[in-house]
């Protein structure tokens, strides 16, 4: 790793060949330059970014799901698990990447460990809350009809927790896409790479703007896809949210403040 501070003084600019007037003048966004470099720079970066994110969210979900089931079964485990995952979540991304380097080197593994550790808190909290928010009377009715603990978990608790689980997945995915740009400090992959490339070219604006815009776009598309997926998996959940009963009435019936956990789905 070398010097990654954007140049403030005059440097010898290298704006991708003199053929493009916009690029030579370092315009805010040069469409031609962008399309010319899609195949060599941006396309691969987007694909790498998606892979980095997908692996992190996938592994993170598997771990968080297992931990959530444990915490759901054994109450006492929730506090330590939540404590450790929020400890990880609190560490600034750049610092965590560097602290992992002595262990796993400048590798993809380092990146994935960091990204996974950021998803844990978001996913774990949402899955546990989703399971715990299943109304006790529903569970009681299931028990009364003769369902076993295992059947209640599979047929009642998990399906009813789907909206909360998806809420967690959406936050975790969007957050991971955002953090995966930082991966470029460790490996030359993802949409952070063009940003560093732009710095090395002497603050080339088009590359800054294109990489950032693609990261935002990617987050937005991923969020929409997850919403669509949720509609397919749990169509009833979408209807439930657009309640026709005014919120004030619901509150009056509940007779108390909305619990903090309910705010998540607002």
């Amino acid at each position: 790793m070398g010097l990654l501070i954007a140049a403030s003084g005059p440097v010898i600019p290298n704006f991708g060949g003199a053929s493009d007037k916009c690029a030579v003048n370092n315009g805010f966004f040069c469409w031609n330059w962008f399309t010319q470099h899609w195949g060599s720079t941006f396309g691969p970066a987007v694909v790498q970014h998606i892979i980095l994110t997908a692996i992190a969210v996938g592994i993170g979900f598997a771990i968080a799901f297992a931990l959530a089931l444990l915490a759901y079964r054994f109450d006492w485990m929730e506090t330590p698990i939540a404590g450790i995952s929020s400890f990880l979540y609190t560490i600034p991304s750049l610092a965590l990447f560097q602290i992992l380097v002595p262990f796993t080197g400048l590798t993809r593994l380092t990146v994935e460990i960091a990204l996974v550790s950021y998803t844990l808190l978001l996913l774990f909290r949402n899955i546990v809350t989703g399971l715990r928010e299943v109304p006790e009377e529903v569970r009681d009715a299931a028990r009364g009809m003769g369902l076993t603990q295992r059947q209640i978990l599979l047929r009642i608790d998990l399906p009813l927790a789907v909206p909360a689980i998806f809420a967690g997945l959406r936050v975790a995915t969007v957050t991971t896409i955002s953090l995966a740009t930082v991966a470029a400090f460790v490996v030359d992959e993802g949409l952070g790479a063009p940003i560093f490339d732009a710095i090395s070219r002497g603050n080339f604006k088009t590359e800054f703007v294109a990489a950032a815009a693609l990261a935002i776009l990617l987050a937005w598309v991923a969020d929409l896809l997850l919403v669509a997926l949720q509609r397919m998996v749990a169509p009833w959940a979408a209807k439930r949210r657009s309640s026709v009963v005014p919120r004030s009435v619901v509150r009056a019936i509940r007779g108390r403040r909305r619990p903090i956990s309910a705010v998540r789905e607002t």
Binding site: I177, N203, F208, V209, A219, W220
Partner: peptide, 29 residues
């Protein structure tokens, strides 16, 4: 309420590094 939540979601989708990059393009160092 819709606006507040939309801004919050939008904010979450903004990569910090990307933001800094965009403002490098707009405002410079």
């Amino acid at each position: 309420s819709g606006m507040a939540i939309r801004i919050a979601n939008l904010g979450r989708a903004l990569p910090e590094l990307g933001l800094i990059a965009i403002f490098l393009a707009i405002l410079g160092i």
